[in-house]
Design a protein around this nucleic acid. Structure first.
Lengths: 159, 159
DNA sequence: CCTTGACTGTTAAGATTTCAACAAGTTACT
DNA sequence: AGTAACTTGTTGAAATCTTAACAGTCAAGG
C-alpha cells in the first residue's frame, strides 16, 4: 500500500465500510471477467456476442417473437442508435426482420425469423452449458437464492 | 439434460436447473444495469469512465504508483491494444506518464502523476458513495459475505 | 382543424474497441 | 555466439458504439 498519503480513501481490514468495498470489488471484477469469458466462448462456439444472443432471447420469448425497437432498447441496455445499428446487422444476417407497425406508424416491429430461431436455439444450448460451467456449478442452492434475492432487490431500486 | 435419472418429459414445479437459470439471468441483467448506472454517474460527476477509474485505482495501489502495461492489461480486462489506446488518452490528459523500463526494455512502466492522484481521489469519493447508494445499501452483512465468498470462488475457477 | 410538445426511430460524425499483423527484446537451447 | 520460440507492446484498418441533431408521427388543448 501507499506510504505517502496521510488519509488514503482506500483502506483494508477496518470496519464494515472497508469490508463492504472489498466485497464490491470482488463482485465487480469477477463479474467483468465472467462476462468476458462467456462472450468469448459464445462468439467462438456460435458466432454471436452475448448482447446479440440476449436480443434473440428477448424476441424468442415475446408474443409473435416480435418486439418494437423501443421495447428491445429498454430491456437490453442499449442506446436507440446502438440498437438501430445492431438490428441492421442481425437483419443482414437474416436472423431478424423489420416490419412496419400498423398501430403506430413511427414504430417498427422486429421479428425473429425462422433462421433466427434455429440460430438462437443452437446458441442457447451452448450458452447455458457455459453458464453452468463458469457460474452455476460453483454455487449451491442457498447461495443461489441469496443472489437471486439480492439482485432483484437491487434491480427494483435502480433508477 | 440430467443423464443420471430418467428425465421426465413434463416437469411439475421447477427444478434446480430452471430456478438456477432464472437466478443467473436476474444477476446478469442487474449486473449490466449496475455497471451502466455507475458509469454514467462517474462520467457526469468526475469525467471518468469506470474503466479509467479502475486503471487509476490499480496504479494508486501499486508500489511507486507504477505498473507495466502487461500488469494493467491483465487486471483490467483489456486487450493489449485497447489498453494502449486508453493509456494514450490518460497520458494526454496528464493523469499518467509512460516511462521506459530498465530491467526489460520491451516493457513500459505507467505511473500515476500527481494530477492523476488528485483526480483519482476526487473520483474515489464520489464513486464509493455511488456504490453505496446503488449496491451496498441494499445488502446486509450476511448477504454481503455470501457474495464475497461466491464470487471469489468463481474467480479462482475462471480460466 | 392546427399548433405545440412529446415519442419513436434514424442518421452522420466522431470516439472507442477489436482484430490481425507486426516489431523489438528476451530466453532457452545448441 | 546463433537461432528459434516466446513475450511485450505497437500499429493500421475495420467494426462497433456514442453523441447530437434530425424527420416523421402521435396526442392534447385551444
Amino acid at each position: 500500500m501507499s506510504e505517502t498519503t496521510a488519509a488514503p480513501i482506500i483502506r483494508f481490514g477496518r470496519g464494515r465500510e472497508e469490508r463492504a468495498q472489498q466485497a464490491w470489488r470482488t463482485y465487480f471484477e469477477t463479474s467483468q471477467r465472467l462476462r468476458q469469458v462467456l462472450d468469448d466462448r459464445l462468439k467462438e462456439q456460435a458466432g454471436l456476442s452475448v448482447s446479440d444472443y440476449n436480443a434473440l432471447l428477448l424476441l424468442w420469448e415475446a408474443p409473435e417473437r416480435t418486439l418494437t425497437m423501443g421495447a428491445l432498447a429498454k430491456r437490453l441496455v442499449f442506446s436507440p442508435s446502438r440498437l438501430n445499428y445492431r438490428i441492421k446487422v442481425l437483419e443482414d444476417a437474416g436472423l431478424v426482420e423489420k416490419l412496419a407497425c400498423a398501430e403506430d406508424r413511427r414504430s417498427h416491429n422486429i421479428r425473429l425469423t425462422e433462421a433466427g430461431g434455429r440460430r438462437f436455439l443452437d446458441a442457447a444450448r451452448l450458452h447455458s452449458r457455459a453458464v453452468d460451467e463458469v457460474f452455476l456449478s460453483h454455487v449451491d442452492d442457498a447461495e443461489l437464492e441469496v443472489i437471486e434475492t439480492v439482485f432483484s432487490r437491487i434491480a427494483k431500486a435502480l433508477p
